[in-house]
């Protein structure tokens, strides 16, 4: 999967937009350079022979840690640490 993504200005701008970050011109330039270096470093992984190795999706080898379906109420005041509230509701921004 060599050149699936090329790090360029356009990609950095898109990532910033998806991550809701506002970047300055200088930052865009700086991060474009830095991300290139990072991706280059990860490219070394392409050299590893993974023939016959199971793909890994998760650091833990555990499975099936389940809980029974029982309602166990949590006793607290969920709103006590916020000033953004109205009655028993949290208050949030309007949708842009």
């Amino acid at each position: 999967m060599s050149d699936h993504w090329t790090i360029d200005r356009g990609l950095v701008e898109r990532i910033a937009k998806v991550a809701r970050l506002e970047l300055t011109e200088d930052e865009i330039e700086k991060f474009t350079k830095q991300l290139k270096v990072i991706l280059e470093a990860f490219r070394e992984l392409d050299d590893v022979d993974t023939e016959g190795v199971e793909p890994s999706f998760h650091p833990q080898e555990l499975s099936n840690v389940l809980r029974e379906d029982e309602a166990t109420p949590w006793s607290w005041d969920p709103l006590e640490n916020t000033e953004h509230r109205e009655g028993r509701y949290f208050k949030g921004p309007r949708i842009q």
């Binding site: 029982e70 309602a71 949590w74």
Partner: peptide, 27 residues
Amino acid sequence: TESKLFCGCSTDSEGAEPNGNTCPICL
């Protein structure tokens, strides 16, 4: 179900006050 997908909060919120069936997991 009786409880939520990842925590023990009740799924029956009819008549419950807003945010009454919550915990640190579902928030």
